[in-house]
Design a protein around this nucleic acid. Structure first.
Lengths: 235, 235
DNA sequence: CGCATCTTTGAGGAGTCTCAAGAGAGGTGG
DNA sequence: CCACCTCTCTTGAGACTCCTCAAAGATGCG
């Protein structure tokens, strides 16, 4: 298992047509003109990563914006004692690492592949230049930054206002369509990862699921079933 | 004491020359051309607020970006039980409320004046239009969004990695110039407010100061003295 | 000086973490 | 198809942190 990846260490590839399709289908690109998209993807490269590969590390120089083409990426910070705090988890189709672009090309957190993943890199200097040229690129970047800021604020508020079972209930409700009273879905990752995302120890997540069982939530492996949406909302 | 302010309820004024100076001296405007700044300030208005005035509330429509001209503003979210979680505290010269601009003009949090405050409002539709026209405005907006996102991520990471005394130590160190080993400064607000900003109950902040006393921190009213920077960093 | 507000201190309790061990799931090879 | 192994997840027990409530002590303002 390769624990650390550094620029230059790894084989970089050109985008294939599937990679391009994922990028163009992502939220960031959906509002862009073909010309703008092409200009961004010009010179983009792809790397493949195994589980636990480090994509970048806090305070190191970073000259790309990243996009998950397949797999999953965890962004986190390290405490002095080596403990890790997750900032966000990005699934396929999400851009991340754009902050460094505005902060002297230094990463403010670490990023790690969860499971084997394919990652696209867009040259951030190029992107900045294009943002001056195409207002819709600037607009898309602002919306990206806003969404990511919002995600962090949501997490912060939830951490401060909700208990562990309430945070888990909130996560489940976020995957539940509005109208339905009963619903089921599959977790997109291991419980381990969910625990980190919610700022919990794995044991605490497990106990939270136990507590929610009494409110009509059934958990089997990665399958979650909700039998009574109302009860969950009141939790 | 007026607890709630709503658009239209309050007397709005034009910017006076001092207001303009504060705005132009703020971080947001420092990189802008005079033409761009003038275009933004065209049509800006000012309102005066007493302590605890609400500037906007979650999910309500907001069509301005705000700037603190004097005083202090607290941005927070409400839990179902009425408890409040601070997202950020903005001092004089800081813009806030820019998120609503990218999210359908709906506020994602509440904002409240701490102490009597003067607030400028910049029309957000105007700002958006200008961002398409002036690349440096778009750039400044991106940097603003990035800084605010970063602030939230910093808070989140600190909440998850540090104990109460460690968070207080980190706050103090953030006000301490790099070279010095001994230092003192005055809190820019009541301890109450600091507690909220750090995600602590006021009692917990008090106890954290007690704990830090053993590491060479003296607290008298709002004055903080650090006698041994190293000890604080190790805490 | 007196009152209101802010801050500190104490005691008890809720919530979450850590460590340790047991149960379950998934994969591999016989 | 089963036995075995590994990895993940769950459960239990104890410790620790922080919150809440209550009361006493500062602080500041009129």
């Amino acid at each position: 298992m390769r624990l650390l990846f550094r620029a230059g260490t790894m084989k970089t590839l050109r985008l294939n047509s599937n990679d391009k399709a994922v990028l163009l289908g992502s939220r960031f690109f959906e509002t862009l003109s073909a010309a703008a998209s092409d200009a961004i993807l010009e010179g983009a490269v792809v790397t493949n990563h195994e589980e636990h590969d480090i994509l970048f590390q806090q305070d190191e120089p970073v000259d790309s914006v990243f996009c998950v083409l397949s797999g999953l990426v965890r962004v986190y910070r390290l405490g002095k004692d080596g403990r890790e705090a997750d900032i966000a988890v990005f699934p396929k189709g999400e851009l991340f690492g754009e902050n460094a672009m505005f902060l002297g090309n230094r990463a403010t957190a670490n990023a790690q592949a969860i499971g084997s993943s394919t990652i696209a890199r867009l040259d951030s200097r190029n992107l900045r230049k294009l943002a001056e040229q195409y207002p819709d690129i600037a607009q898309a970047l602002m919306e990206l930054l806003c969404r990511h800021g919002q995600m962090a604020e949501d997490c912060l508020a939830e951490d401060r206002l909700l208990t562990a079972p309430q945070r888990v209930a909130s996560y489940i409700l976020g995957h539940c369509p509005d109208g339905s009273t009963t619903f089921s879905f599959r977790l997109p990752f291991q419980k381990n990862v969910l625990a980190g995302k919610l700022g919990l120890a794995p044991e605490a997540l497990s106990r939270a699921f136990s507590a929610l069982r009494r409110s009509g939530v059934t958990v089997k492996g990665r399958m979650i079933e909700i039998h009574d949406r109302q009860a969950l909302e009141r939790f």
